[in-house]
Design a protein around this nucleic acid. Structure first.
Lengths: 121, 121
DNA sequence: CTTGAATCTGACATGGATGGCAAGTTTTAC
DNA sequence: GTAAAACTTGCCATCCATGTCAGATTCAAG
């Protein structure tokens, strides 16, 4: 599939897909004329990338992480080295923190929303 | 307490605390000479603000939300109006999505970390 | 062919919280 | 009263994914 279809199927803009490629997060075959041609696996990969972005990881970390994931786009490929494991452990803690923050904030929102729905309490 | 101590106690830079004030997220008494003087409640408020920032809300939404929270810095004050409730409901859904993303990403990190810890699997 | 849609590259803009600097004032301590 | 530390305001810089625009090229269909 080409970039437009991938964009449609993932909800990620073509602009971002090109950016992902430049950051080394994904590759694409090229037609003789230079247009990108993606395989089916690209959809999952893009979604995975988006999730990692949403989790606050930067392109560089994601680029290091992706080849260590299994079923990312084929083989389990490589195993994380010590430095990366250390980095990822830090990220993991950050994510835990973020989840806790989110849960608290969600409670706050719920309280406010509920208070507004029960006007005469 | 003054801004330096509040910064120390919350882990938020003085720069950011002034920014919060300019965005209408918090207020401070002033000494005759113009220095900010915070009450004890400021610590909790700053932490709450940080959590909401971490949850992806922008200053404007937080500013609207804060007066509708109970025990924010005194009274329950005001009740959210329809527009705000609608906005907050959208934010709430976004937060739910984000939590789901974070949980998935955390799993990914755990897999990679674990795979690296069990080298001969 | 020809035409319109899709894609290419490259450069510049944006948002929003935060960092940093500069020059001046206030506070604190001796 | 003096010096150092803390604070004030204001402005510009940064990060980083994403948006946007322009001009050129390619692809698909008639």
């Amino acid at each position: 599939m080409r970039i437009g279809e991938l964009a449609r199927r993932t909800g990620v803009s073509g602009r971002s897909l090109r950016y992902y490629e430049k950051q080394g997060l994904m590759t694409a075959e090229r037609t003789p004329g230079g247009h990108r041609e993606y395989g089916e696996g690209a959809v999952d990969r893009v979604i995975r990338i988006q999730e990692l972005f949403a989790a606050g990881l930067c392109s560089e970390k994601i680029a290091q992480l992706l080849p260590c994931m299994r079923d990312s786009d084929g083989g389990p490929s490589r195993t994380a080295n010590g430095q990366l494991v250390s980095d990822l452990t830090v990220e993991r803690e950050r994510i835990d923190h973020m989840i806790a923050d989110l849960l608290r904030s969600r409670e706050v929102l719920d309280e406010v929303i509920e208070a507004a729905s029960a006007p005469s309490e």
